[in-house]
Each structure stands twice: as structure tokens, then as C-alpha cells.
Write a protein that binds this DNA or RNA. Structure first.
Lengths: 144, 144
DNA sequence: AAACTTGTAACTAAATTAATTACATGATAT
DNA sequence: ATATCATGTAATTAATTTAGTTACAAGTTT
């Protein structure tokens, strides 16, 4: 199964807020670019706000970033939108048979390997900032 | 969301087949160690067989590995049990608004980043063999 | 033929996702 | 102050996936 598109949409939201920084970026505006329902966007905005990435206020139209794009990594977004919990990218079967040598050791053996694999994936996300994403979008505009 | 425990169970199955190589490793035997239903195990056995990792025959009790543990990586198991498709660890929202600069570039921008992150995770799995897993299980037996 | 095994299909309950609708609450402009 | 518009949030839905369960056909052995 795949990691929720909340992550991709979260990146989209933050990038577009910056792209539209001189205008008002409402949930409806974002929803139209993402092509989804404004309520979906508002739920995500709530998560991004809770993580301290954006500033939004009830009744006041528009969201703003709280930091520079270069200070926000994809890992920050990934954590903000809650798509994968710590050490839970891979699930391990519960209650193996303890009277079996394999059954009683498999969890302890596998867990650190899975954690390492998850960590390697997350490290890539830590090394990409929203500024990198923005630059690529702008380049796509100029070349494509 | 998490990657299916089919992966962890697949590792369990293969390791136990080797551990019990002088005996007969039936789906019922495996199911009791994993603590699940034999039909679940047989379905996984079918996947492992299709991937060429084990040999099983209708009507004949027991499965055997087709290779040495040191020749099977966790990545092989991961692919065999079909838990994550190529370039699909992360899902990306479909149909963003093409009239928006961010909407029309976000997919192309994000895709390679996600592929890199997935690749980093999978690289870890490629660098661990079932022999490593077995050694850790044996060590757990001797120390723990 | 009886007993046992693998291979598979059909069905279930639980969990998650993404979308949708609805509405309370907050802010603002006329 | 009231109409208007935005955010915040809850409830509901359909679709998908998972893991388990039951059942049974087909192959093998004794």
C-alpha cells in the first residue's frame, strides 16, 4: 500500500502559498489548484498549522508560511501531515509462537532492519527543502 | 499507513523453512509459528514460489528453499510478496489544476524525489540477506 | 480408498483514505 | 448590526486494502 497523498498535497499547499505570497491563499483557492474539496484542504491546513509551518486564523482568509522555504524540508511536511509513524513504515505480525526459535526472535531481529530502511528513506526527505521544490517548479515553467 | 506484514511474514516463512530444513515444513507448521491461518501462509507460499524463492508441490507436504540464504536479500522477499509497487511507495494526487503553475508542475517535480526516497529504503533491503537474519536469530537464541 | 497436503476462491470485519455535506465560530465591510 | 465570507470541525460515504476464515478441488502417499 502507498503512503497517503496527504504528503504530496501538503507540499503542493505550502509551495502554492509561497508562490501566491502577494495574494490571498484561501482554502478554496488551494482546493482548486489541488483539485479537491476545500474541507480536505482545511484539514491539512490544520495539520500544517499545528506543526508550525503556516499561520492561519479563523475567519481571516488566507494562509502564510511561518518560515522561509529553505528552512522547511520535505521531512517536516511528512511529519506534519502524519502519514507514517515513527518505526511504523513496515508492519510486523503480532504474537508469533514463542516456543519456536524463529517465532520468538523474528521481531527483535527484523525491527532494527526496518527502522534502518525507514530512516534511509526519511533521510532523503530531510535533504530536500521546499526551496528545492520551488526551484524545480519554476524551472519546469521556463523550460517545459 | 504501513507496509503490509506480508513482508515480515515472508521473511519468517523463509527463515523457518531453512531452520527446519531437515524436517517437513508444511503450511500448518508455518502457520503455527507465525500464529495465523494456514490459508494465509499458502497464499504467501504461492507468491514466494512464483518468485522462485521456494519449491512447493501440490499434494506434497513441505517447502524447500531454492537458494542459499546468503543469496536471498530482503529486497527479493519484499518484491516477491508484492507489498510496494515500483515508484508507488508515495502516492501523488491526480488531476491537479493545469492552469496553475504549481498544479501543472508538482507531479513532475515530486515524482523523482519520491522515487529517490523509495530507492534509498529499498537499497537497505538489498544489503541485508536472509543469512544475516538467520545469524541474528541464532545470536538471539544464544544470548537472550 | 482414506488421509493428508497444496492451491484457490469466496466471504468477512476492520482500518484507512479521500470526498462530501453541514454548520458553528470568527472577522469584516457596508 | 447584519450580511457576507473564511476557517475549524464533525459526521457520513464509497472505495480500497488487509488479514482472517471457511470450503473445497486436485494432487500424493500409504
Amino acid at each position: 500500500m502507498s503512503i497517503s497523498s496527504r504528503f504530496a498535497v501538503g507540499i503542493h499547499i505550502l509551495t502554492l502559498i509561497e508562490f501566491n505570497k502577494d495574494g490571498i491563499t484561501s482554502s478554496e483557492f488551494l482546493a482548486s489548484s489541488v483539485n479537491t474539496n476545500p474541507a480536505v484542504i482545511r484539514k491539512l491546513m490544520g495539520m500544517l498549522k499545528k506543526a508550525g509551518l503556516i499561520e492561519v486564523h479563523p475567519g481571516i482568509a488566507g494562509a502564510k508560511l511561518t518560515m522561509k522555504l529553505s528552512d522547511i524540508t520535505l521531512f517536516d511536511v511528512y511529519k506534519a501531515v502524519n502519514v507514517v509513524q515513527d518505526k511504523e513504515l513496515f508492519s510486523i505480525h503480532e504474537n508469533p509462537q514463542l516456543s519456536c526459535p524463529v517465532g520468538r526472535n523474528i521481531q527483535n531481529t527484523i525491527e532494527p532492519i526496518f527502522a534502518t530502511a525507514q530512516g534511509a528513506m526519511e533521510k532523503v526527505l530531510k535533504n530536500v527543502t521546499l526551496e528545492d521544490v520551488m526551484n524545480d517548479i519554476v524551472a519546469g515553467e521556463n523550460i517545459g
